[in-house]
Structure formats: structure tokens, C-alpha cells
Design a protein around this nucleic acid. Structure first.
Lengths: 345, 345
DNA sequence: TTGTATGCGTTATCAA
DNA sequence: TTGATAACGCATACAA
């Protein structure tokens, strides 16, 4: 029932095959210089014995190499990414004993060339790349090349298609949108005149979120009618104007769904219109200005995608990839969409 | 800025003090047999250099001892604790490379003597104890004795007072109750006639949760009046009867808050009364039968305390205590109260 | 009372 | 093409 002893080691493999540890190691790490038939025997034995590298042993060895994990996000001044990076730092601190370290590049905006340059600047220093990826074929190509040279990429917060990233750490945006729809239905009692303030259409996640939201809303809460839709352009000033115009133009609007950034600006507009009947405002992500609006009672509820956990889990997963020596595909790590109200902010 | 190299090691301490590694080790692990002045010098050096045992080195050494973590819960047939134990097993699997193993005792009910016996049965086999503690002085005493003999205790899910447990892993029950209150206010629009189905009064967590709920409800949503209150006695059949009687006796009740177990029974009662106007039912914890009730639309929303994470984090923390060799007080690990609706179950 | 040698598993280096 | 050995940091059995 209970396994009596620790797992099989390189030494065991060596003994079984009648060779030395060195030879097994050469096969394991593909260094060549091993006779074909010996290599085959060793590979077969590894297969059959289900051998995997022991992390405790690796850890001690890895310590001598002082590996670096590269992190690239396009956070700019967005406080959401402060949380992501705080998570990275927390994990880095906890893993300090293993000699692993994070090197972080925080870009402003989503320029493909800038991201490519940032990736290049990391080479050949890093062992693993954590990337908030722009969904562009050139980035995908860069990730493939990185992998060729032995550096696996983990995408965080934002995934991209047709690349060789080993897995994605982040939220399910469609599900996040659906959750927001469910929440809106619950708060409004399933009836209302809705205004939607969207994000920017170049970000895959925002599109997925909007899609999840609208689909779910239409099927489950058909009596919530969408009156107007405008983009906040990821900017609070723009958001303020767009929201103000919308509310003045459509006095019948009684609930507002923010899809992405711009919550603070939209809330100021809501406050400035001084409606008698309160508007139900829902938004995403618990960044400080948004939290303030929940505290003030302007925003009723949030759907949050746990930025801290995203960074924390991504860095831990990166170190795990180093430890296991496994650079192949793994399971995505999906953080849950959390509902936040005043009481559990 | 960036630390150039790995941290200070025993070898460094030894060199600085002009003694051997063995002597430093004797001081570190308090084995005595060291000259007073030498010991003092070593201790001072350790202090000043901020030395801590390196986990990578410890890991490899710990592997040879095959440490066991004892886990005691009073889960009985409650599926909530299945999730806790699944979390333990997940962590155990991930840490298999380090030779650490969990030994689990799942008791039925909250009998102090049974829990004491379970603890005894673990000794002297285990290195750390994870305990869903009954809040009783005898248990606290047992935890103190365990610590004396070098075995630290981590409480999980349920904490106890005045003991020497090194920290608690679980939810904040008061905050959970407050969250439920906020949710109820939001769903009802702040007006309603409420029935409360409570848990058993012997469990500290349930009392705290009820307290958080009622306090918050009264201050923030005074127009939700509590019409009736009954206990489900942690039993679905009992819960069914109590709820049925309550609903028949008070036809004005239009919302129902479950505090602890018994959700399934209460829901059956709600269904059986066949009210024309729907009752808003809120409950705790996403156990399978409760999830089913959310899917059926009987329960509107849940507050969940992440049982899987509790087990997962507790076991990882236990291993961390082994690795760091640190048996002293640490920070509690508080899992958040999550709001669940149909869309993010 | 103190120092030294050994081993945990992996891997790099050097010798054969 | 292979084998032997040392090193990472810690802990312990044994020698001095």
C-alpha cells in the first residue's frame, strides 16, 4: 500500500544497466557520446522504472547555477500589474534558498517590437521566460525559437495562439464575463436598462470577456436590455466623458457594466450626473481606485482575476520547470474569477 | 542591489568562528557538548550573519528520514472534508520527491477523547501534526505536550484557543458571515423577511459565522427582519423538518439563510412547500448536494471557504516547517471567503 | 569537547 | 566512449 522507500535514482538505473552514473546522465541530458545500444538499454530502463529526476537532488545542484527567470509584462502604470509583480516577488523571496532570481521588464503599452526586443535582451541569461504575451504571430515565433534554444515560456494573464508556450497561468476571461452577467442579473432582479463600457478591442481577453458577458446575459437575463455601448479606451478621462455622454443621452439607463479599465472615470461620471435613483454599477478587478468606489457605494460588486496569485503561481511554476528539468507542455493554471462585494474586498 | 551569490552556509559560520562544521551543527541543533564561550561565539555569528538553514540542503537530507505528517480531521461523511483531504493528497503527491508522507485519521464526530487518542496513536511516528482541533483545553494541553517533544501542530479549518499550535490554516468565519449578509442584502434589495437555519452551537466557527452574519445584517440591512431561527443540527433530515415547520408557520418568510450543514434538507423543504413567490435561499460551502441545488435554481448564491486549498496549503506549510527546521510561531494562513453563483461554481 | 568522514541525488569535470 | 570523483548544504556516526 504505502511505498516503503524513496523512488528510483540514477544510481539504480546505472546498476541495473551495468554502467556508471555518468553514462546515464549523458543519456538523460542528451549529451551524446554514448554507444547506441547502451543508450537504448538505458532509455528502456528509464521508461520501465518510471524514473524521474529527484527534485531534492536537483535543487541542490541548481543552487550552483543561480538560474534567472525572465518576466515581461506590459503593465505600464496599471496597478493591476503591480499586484502580479508583487506575487512574483513573494514567490522569489520564498525560493531564495534555491538560488533562483527574477528579472523583470515592465513595458508601457502593447507594442510587438518592444516585446520582441525585451525578449532578446534576456538572452542568453534566463532559464525560463514568463510572458504576458501579445497575441501576435511574431511573438509566437519568438517563443518557438526560445524553446529551440532550451528556454521554455510560460504565458501569464494573457495567452496567445499557436505558440509553443508550455502553459498559461491566468484567468478564464469568458467565464469571467459570464460571472459578471450572473451577478448583474442577481443584483437587478433580472430587469434593467444597461449601459456597457467596454475595453480596447486589441486585447483578446477583453473581447472574450465581453463575449461571455453578453452571451450569458442574453440567454439567462433577456429582460436586461442593452441600451448603449461605448469604449473607455483604457483611459479614465476618456471613460469619464463616454460615460457622462451615455448617461445624459439615455436617462433610462439604470445599470452599468464596466468591462475593463476606466472604472474610476466612469464612476466619477455616475456621481456627477446626480441621478435620484441609484445606478447599479458593476466592474472588474480590485485595483485601489475601484476598491475605493466599492467602499463609497458607487460600485456594487466586482469580478476579480487574482493578479497576485497569477504572478505567484507563474513564478513557482517556472521554478518547478527548472527543478523538474521538464520543458514540455503542462496543464494550464487557471485562477478563479472571484466575486467581491464590500464585505469581502 | 542584486545579491551576487548564494547565502551564508554552515561552512562559512565554521570558518568565521575557527571551528568545524560539526561544532556549529551541535550548537544549531542544541545538542550541547560545546564549550560555553565557543557556543556563544557561534550563536553571535549566526545572529549577525542572519544565517538560516538552506532548504535545498535540508531537502536532500530530510529525504533520508522519510518524515511523516499526521493529519486528523473530524470529517465523518461530510463531503466538505473530502475536499480538504484531496488537497492534502495533492500536496503530498507534489512533494513525493522529498520523501514526505501524510498519515490521515478521519474521525466521526467531535469527541475530545477520540481526538486525544488519535493524537497519541501518531506518536512518536510523526514530525508535524495537522489538526482540525476541537476547542477544548485538553486538546490544547495535548498540543503543548506534543510541542515539548518536538512536534509542532498546525490547526486546519477549525482553530482553538490558548494552545501552542504554530499557526492556523483556514477561513475567517466572522468575515464569512459578514459576506453572506452583504450578499443577502444585495440579492433581496435590502428588504425581506428572513428565516435562519443555524448549525450546532458546539462548533466555534459556526457561532462566529452566525455572529458575523447577524451583526452585519442588522447594521447594514436593518430592513431585513429576522422572522424565525432554527437549528439544522448538522443533519439533513432534521433540517428538512425544521425548515418545513418554519415555512408553514411563517408564510411571510421570503428569504432563507443557511449557516452550516443541512442545506440539502432545507432545500427539499423549500421545494415541498411550493410557494408561488420564489424564496431567496443562501448557503455556505459548495458540497455536491448544495451545488446541485444551485444548479436547480433553488439556492441563489454560496459563500465558500475553499476546503481543497485548506488541505493543500496546510500540508505544504507542514513540509515547509520540516524543511526550515522552524518549529516556532508563524503567520496564520487565511483562505478567502469566495462568493459562488451559478456562473462561477 | 571537538573534528572528520560519509551520504542524500544530480551533474560537471577530468581521467582513462 | 566510458568511469570515477567532487561538489552543492546539511546532518550524523564515529574518531580523536
Amino acid at each position: 500500500m504505502t511505498k516503503k522507500h524513496s523512488n528510483i535514482t540514477i544510481k539504480d538505473i546505472a546498476k541495473i544497466c551495468g554502467v556508471s552514473r555518468g553514462t546515464v546522465d549523458r543519456v538523460l541530458n542528451g549529451r551524446g557520446k554514448v554507444k547506441k545500444e547502451v543508450e537504448e538499454l538505458i532509455l528502456k530502463t528509464i521508461q520501465e522504472s518510471q524514473y524521474t529526476k529527484n527534485r531534492a537532488g536537483r535543487a541542490l545542484r541548481v543552487l550552483t547555477t543561480q538560474p534567472v527567470v525572465g518576466v515581461i509584462v506590459s503593465g505600464g502604470r496599471n496597478p493591476f500589474f503591480d499586484d502580479v509583480l508583487t506575487g512574483v516577488h513573494k514567490a522569489e523571496k520564498e525560493l531564495a534558498d534555491y538560488g533562483v532570481r527574477a528579472e523583470i521588464i515592465n513595458l508601457r503599452g502593447y507594442d510587438v517590437q518592444h516585446q520582441l526586443d525585451a525578449i532578446s535582451s534576456f538572452m542568453p541569461r534566463i532559464s525560463v521566460l514568463i510572458l504576458q504575451a501579445i497575441n501576435d504571430p511574431r511573438i509566437a515565433q519568438s517563443i518557438r525559437e526560445l524553446k529551440q534554444s532550451g528556454v521554455p515560456t510560460i504565458t501569464v494573464n494573457t495567452d496567445l495562439e499557436n505558440s509553443d508556450r508550455i502553459f498559461y497561468v491566468g484567468s478564464d476571461y469568458v467565464s469571467g464575463g459570464e460571472t459578471a452577467a450572473g451577478l448583474l442579473g442577481m443584483i437587478t432582479g433580472g430587469k434593467g436598462n444597461l449601459g456597457i463600457i467596454t475595453g480596447v478591442s486589441t486585447l483578446l481577453g477583453h473581447i472574450q470577456r465581453l463575449h461571455g458577458f453578453e452571451t450569458r446575459l442574453n440567454t439567462r437575463w433577456p429582460e436586461i436590455r442593452t441600451i448603449a455601448r461605448a469604449s473607455a479606451m483604457d483611459d479614465d478621462e476618456y471613460s469619464y466623458q463616454a460615460t457622462l455622454n451615455m448617461l445624459l443621452e439615455h436617462p433610462e439607463i439604470d445599470c452599468l457594466q464596466l468591462i475593463a479599465a476606466g472604472t474610476y472615470g466612469a464612476c466619477r461620471a455616475v456621481i456627477d450626473t446626480k441621478r435620484e435613483k441609484k445606478i447599479n454599477v458593476l466592474a472588474f478587478d480590485n485595483v485601489p481606485t475601484t476598491v475605493e468606489m466599492v467602499r463609497m457605494g458607487v460600485v456594487r460588486a466586482l469580478v476579480c482575476q487574482q493578479p497576485f496569485e497569477q504572478g505567484y503561481l507563474a513564478f513557482n511554476a517556472a521554478f518547478d520547470a527548472i527543478l523538474s528539468g521538464n520543458k514540455t507542455q503542462g496543464e494550464n493554471i487557471i485562477v478563479e474569477n472571484q466575486i467581491r462585494i464590500l464585505e469581502n474586498l
